[in-house]
Amino acid sequence: MKCQECADKLDRFVDRELTNTEALEVQLHLEGCPDCMEHYEFQEHLKRLVKHSCDCDVAPVAFREKLRQILS
């Protein structure tokens, strides 16, 4: 696998959307290519950052209770 092909598949690799065979090919390339490995780790880090920054909000308890009563 060439670096460009690895870069093209990086989104789907980070999102766990590649087939097992494709993921293995990317994994093997990453293990032998420090540049692509750094890029991959950066993408993973960014995805985690977006998740942890945005998933703090939860529905207020009073709202949850209100909905429970409306729906029952």
Binding site: C54, D55, D57, V58, A59, F63, R64, L67, R68, L71
Partner: peptide, 11 residues
Amino acid sequence: EALTHLDTLYR
């Protein structure tokens, strides 16, 4: 069951 997904919808 629907209410178990409330936080996702609210966010």
